[in-house]
């Protein structure tokens, strides 16, 4: 206890010394010093932020449940589907060099890939990852597309109108998966159908009262048929087969926004 008291006295003593010294310094000099200090911290924070943003290397895999995100995730990571998948209950996450790049020489920058479960109850999870995403991959089941068209479009609409996506203009890839089957729809067809569907959604999502579903932003140009070219961010389409490992277009997209 005594030691503590002593220690306390010592601190008070130093404090007083410091105060005295401060009183001796002219006030203008003091203000200048404070201003310089504030300015440098500000600069520091800014650079840290810019640095962080520039370094974003996160690619987010989204899409309805059963579209094949988890399969794609493991294809990207291990080049294998292992023993198959079941519905995900939690995101899969990993920072790695793509499997196809493991044979390449030289230093390659790893990618942070997140596979968000498609079950609608788990969608709030998406908001955690979107702000730091360098690119979004929206996986669509090209095989069972028509019955899921509306649900997929609604999900995509919600993503495209999120503030975090619009403000940062995060590029989005609509990836038509399961093209290994001959009955799969083409990416042009899917793109057109989704555009049509989103066009209708725009009408029902224009809020006039509290009872409406309001999105943060609206899509497209009023009075014009919606097309993805009207989006604030870049929206492209590609094809893939997670089962066969034909994922070169997906890898191209990833490497376009997360440079190796």
């Amino acid at each position: 206890m005594d030691e503590f008291e002593q220690w306390k006295e010592q601190v008070v003593h130093w404090w007083n010394l410091g105060l005295e010294y401060l009183h001796q310094v002219p006030p203008t000099q003091l203000y200048a010093a404070a201003a310089v200090l504030a300015f440098t911290t500000f600069l520091l924070l800014l650079t840290v932020r810019l640095f962080k943003r520039a370094k974003s290397h996160t690619i987010v895999l989204t899409g309805l449940s059963g579209s094949g995100k988890t399969v794609l995730f493991y294809q990207l990571r291990d080049g294998s589907t292992h023993q198959g998948t079941v519905t995900s209950m939690e995101p899969n996450e990993g920072t790695f060099i793509l499997h196809s790049e493991t044979t390449k020489k030289g230093k390659i920058k790893p990618v942070h890939i997140v596979d968000i479960p498609g079950h609608s109850r788990l969608r709030p999870k998406l908001d955690e990852y979107l702000p730091k995403a360098a690119g979004i991959v929206f996986v669509v089941d090209a095989l069972e597309f028509l019955p899921n068209c509306r649900a997929a479009s609604e999900y995509l609409y919600d993503i495209l109108t999120k503030g975090s996506v619009v403000k940062k203009k995060i590029p989005l890839l609509i990836l038509c998966n399961k093209t290994d089957k001959v009955t799969a729809h083409s990416k042009e067809f899917i793109r057109r159908q989704i555009e049509k569907e989103i066009d209708k959604l725009r009408a029902s999502r224009s809020a006039i009262s509290d009872a409406d579903i309001a999105n943060e932003f609206t899509l497209g140009v009023a009075g014009e048929q919606f097309s993805f070219s009207q989006c604030y961010n870049e929206v492209t389409t590609a094809e893939a087969s997670g089962l066969n490992g034909e994922i070169s277009q997906l890898e191209q997209f990833i490497r376009k926004y997360v440079k190796p």
């Binding site: 988890t70 939690e90 899969n92």
Partner: peptide, 8 residues
């Protein structure tokens, strides 16, 4: 399987 959905 994992909670992420991969069958082990």
């Amino acid at each position: 399987f994992t909670r992420g959905g991969l069958i082990l």
